[in-house]
Computed example of a mutant assay.
Amino acid sequence: MSGSAPHGRVAEWPDPAAGSFLIVSVGADPVTAARTAGRTADAEAIGSTRLVVLDDVDHPADAAALADALAAARTGVRILLLGGRYDVLQAAARAREAGAIPAEITLETTHAVDLPVYCAHCRGTHRVAADPGERVLCPGCARLLEIHDHLAGTLGAFLASDTGEAPVRAGDRGGPGLGGAELDGAGHGDRAFVG
């Protein structure tokens, strides 16, 4: 994903009409580092550029650094968010919360290993290794959730709700007549069965 309205934009980077640039790079993977170096050089050739490198958008020190960079941004800035899907979507939500509009935000994901999921039951946003349409055990409330193909931009997360099935660990089919979804050791499930 290189960006998608209304959560971000797909645009030529860098925008030559920008007043300045804020590049936020999250994660230590080599693809993110290489893309960040290239995008930063491109932006610096046009105008004032600030680069913020974070390890994890949820770590308190990194969250504070992101908040500070967003607070210092002014009208005309173009914000590029690079990194894994979870971190980019969460950073985009924080940028919008800080006052950035979709036209100012460009998203560039370098991997889709993890996904931000908002549980409608415990009302928490969690990092999970799954995709929309899949089922996952909620890290917050332990319900078996179905991840919907609906990205809530203000939350920076995909919405998920209880499947109504009881989660059952792999190899434990429960008693006769008990339905549920079988989960692997990581809490993921994609098979429904009746015991």
Rank of each mutant, 00 (worst) to 15 (best):
S2W: 12
S2D: 14
P6E: 02
P6T: 02
R9Y: 01
V10I: 08
E12I: 03
W13Y: 07
P14V: 02
I23H: 06
I23Y: 06
V24Y: 11
V31P: 06
G38W: 08
A43P: 05
E44K: 09
G47P: 13
S48P: 10
V52M: 05
D56V: 02
P60K: 04
A61M: 08
A64C: 14
A64M: 14
L70H: 09
A71M: 04
R78N: 06
R78W: 03
I79S: 03
L80M: 07
G83Y: 11
R85G: 00
V88N: 05
V88W: 06
A91N: 06
A91H: 07
A91M: 11
A92M: 14
R94N: 07
A100F: 11
D114M: 10
C122G: 00
C122E: 00
A129C: 07
D131I: 00
G133K: 15
R135V: 00
L137F: 09
C138K: 14
P139W: 15
L144A: 11
L145V: 01
I147L: 00
A152K: 04
A152N: 07
L159A: 07
L159G: 01
A160M: 12
R169Y: 09
R169A: 13
G171Q: 12
D172Y: 09
G174T: 04
G175F: 08
G180P: 15
A186V: 07
H188A: 05
D190H: 13
F193L: 05
G195H: 01
